[in-house]
Simulated scan of single mutants.
Amino acid sequence: MDVSLTVWSITIGAIIVLIAVDLFTVSAKPHEVKFKEAASWSLFYIGIAVAFGVWVLQEYGSTAGTEYFAAYLVEKSLSVDNLFVFVIILAQFAVPSIYHQRILLIGVILALVLRGIFIAVGAAALAAFSFTFVIFGAILIWTGVGLFKHWDEDPEPNDNAIVKKIRARIKMVNEYHGSKMFIRIDGKRIATPMFLVMIAIGSTDLLFALDSIPATFGVTSETFLVFAANAFALLGLRALYFLVKGLLDRLIYLSLGLSIILMFIGVKLIMTYLHEQFDSIPKISTPIGLAVIGGILIVSTVASLIKSKSDPAARAHAGRVTSGHDPEE
């Protein structure tokens, strides 16, 4: 793909405008987000993502269009797992529901910045060293295997090393003071629980970026498509949270399905590298990859709904890559 600087500028500018509109209008005043509002914004962001994909299809051809939609599907599915963790963080830190929207929007902004950095680094590494495909593939396989082993567990935000260090080193109050992260008491600047929440959200974004960026590069090596797929998937994350948070507990096998998707994309990346070295080794095409990813998501979703219907007490888990045992305890 030959993407001009003008196209890059317009795309980034449009994303900034969307964030600004959200930041200064919709989420400017803390409020409870109802289903109708969440559904409207979810459809809006999905519509923008699909319209962008249609434009890519017309402007750059079917291959680019297929790769974009495959990358968007991967990012959207991984973002649902991200939502699980956000729900856990907001619940364990007892964040008042009227502030959820603002926190999630800031989390999305942080995620966009972090993923932009990772995409730039990843693209440069792939351009300089084709063996980076193998490194990315190994990361995804390792992550997928870990998630497969612990798909029915939940992460513990308070085990976060950064959160632990901040708790130990920074003086904090126990009460929330609106959306403020710091307040002044007797002339001293003191942190509120909101500061810890934002640290937990930001570090979670960082961890998800380490998985999602290699996964997106697994379906397309075009930097522009990787960035666009990530951006449009993230922009709709806040609205999706309020739309499906009541349904998340029913997606019992989603984490299991995502673990298989990560391992599949990891294998796909390694085979891509080997195909470049040895013609006899086949390369998994984007249409086949898209079909496999879509099939896994459909099977895991249907199986989840069947399980939740037969066993109402069963609930979904976010999953974790490593064991829940804390060696320091």
Score class of each variant (00 low, 15 high):
291 A>I: 12
126 L>I: 10
42 S>H: 04
170 I>V: 15
42 S>F: 15
318 A>F: 13
78 L>T: 12
11 T>Q: 09
130 S>D: 14
172 M>Y: 03
226 V>D: 07
111 A>R: 03
301 T>N: 11
221 S>K: 15
164 K>W: 13
308 S>L: 06
35 F>D: 12
200 A>W: 01
182 F>P: 01
74 V>P: 01
57 L>A: 12
30 P>T: 06
220 T>V: 07
154 D>V: 06
184 R>Q: 14
62 S>P: 00
145 V>S: 01
246 G>M: 14
201 I>M: 00
71 A>Q: 01
15 I>G: 00
88 I>G: 00
269 L>R: 08
151 W>Y: 15
233 A>C: 02
26 V>A: 04
272 T>L: 09
68 Y>T: 08
56 V>M: 10
276 E>M: 13
198 M>C: 03
242 F>W: 10
40 S>Y: 11
278 F>R: 12
329 E>G: 14
51 A>G: 09
89 I>A: 04
244 V>C: 10
37 E>R: 05
184 R>V: 13
95 V>E: 01
215 A>M: 04
210 L>W: 05
219 V>W: 09
60 Y>C: 10
115 R>M: 01
279 D>Y: 13
189 R>K: 15
44 F>R: 02
154 D>F: 11
247 L>C: 07
86 F>K: 02
138 A>C: 11
249 D>H: 13
33 V>C: 06
120 A>N: 03
129 F>K: 10
197 V>D: 01
298 I>M: 10
285 S>Y: 07
255 S>W: 04
41 W>V: 08
199 I>E: 03
131 F>Q: 02
134 V>D: 04
108 V>N: 01
70 A>P: 05
201 I>Q: 00
106 I>W: 09
241 Y>D: 05
7 V>W: 02
88 I>Q: 06
315 R>N: 12
276 E>Q: 14
285 S>C: 12
239 A>Y: 06
81 D>H: 07
226 V>G: 06
189 R>H: 11
272 T>M: 10
153 E>C: 05
217 F>N: 06
310 S>F: 12
328 E>A: 14
175 E>H: 10
120 A>I: 04
138 A>R: 07
179 S>E: 14
